[in-house]
């Protein structure tokens, strides 16, 4: 029998849409690893983050960024690290630097990440996101519900966001975001 190897496929096939000068791109190059803070282990974890990535523990509504590694808080005692990484061993690479100061779970495959950018982005976000994203500072984050789907918004620039939602409903999520752009352009 021929040797079979498995191939990774982006959930949306690497979606890359242009809508009247705006762009929606599926970011399948990013790994996502959750880090839970052990009870009474905040200080050790904060130190490991600083030593490992020069990252501060993010505030609940802000992300921190060090190079290409971004940390966002998802709960009082949990955060996500988002960083470019191709192979399915992201958790191990994070755990290597944490050395047991946090509980890690690979979340790469749990999420779809859409990068949205363009002049109509804030108008489009008004149609889908209940949060006050126009007043987010760059780096500001919020987790909410968009078109009945749980989602996170991270402001990455004046007119750009990373949007995260569950990978199983990625088709519906892309539709929701795309419709929002089409309805304002």
């Amino acid at each position: 029998m021929d040797e079979i190897t498995l191939e990774a496929a982006p959930v949306l096939g690497g979606a890359n849409l242009e809508i009247s000068g705006n762009r929606i791109v599926e970011r399948d190059d990013l790994a996502i690893v959750s880090i839970a803070t052990p009870l009474d282990g905040q200080d050790a974890l904060a130190e490991a983050l600083r030593n490992g990535w020069s990252l501060d523990v993010p505030d609940p509504t802000r992300s921190t960024l060090s190079g290409e590694v971004r940390a966002i808080r998802t709960s009082p005692d949990q955060m996500l690290l988002i960083f470019p990484h191709a192979t399915p061993d992201a958790e191990a690479t994070v755990q290597d630097r944490l050395a047991g100061t946090g509980y890690t779970t690979d979340q790469t495959d749990s999420w779809i990440v859409l990068e949205v950018a363009g002049p109509d982005t804030l108008s489009a976000m008004e149609r889908v996101c209940p949060l006050d994203v126009p007043s987010f500072e760059i780096g500001g984050t919020g987790r909410t519900v968009m078109e009945h789907m749980g989602a996170m918004a991270i402001r990455t620039g004046d007119d750009s966001f990373l949007l995260l939602s569950a990978s199983s409903s990625a088709v519906s999520f892309l539709h929701a975001v795309e419709t929002s752009y089409r309805n304002v352009t």
Partner: peptide, 14 residues
């Protein structure tokens, strides 16, 4: 509240 236990969904991940 003082049990050291942490939860995250991985339904979509696997």
């Amino acid at each position: 509240p003082d049990l050291d236990v942490h939860l995250i969904s991985t339904t979509d991940g696997w």
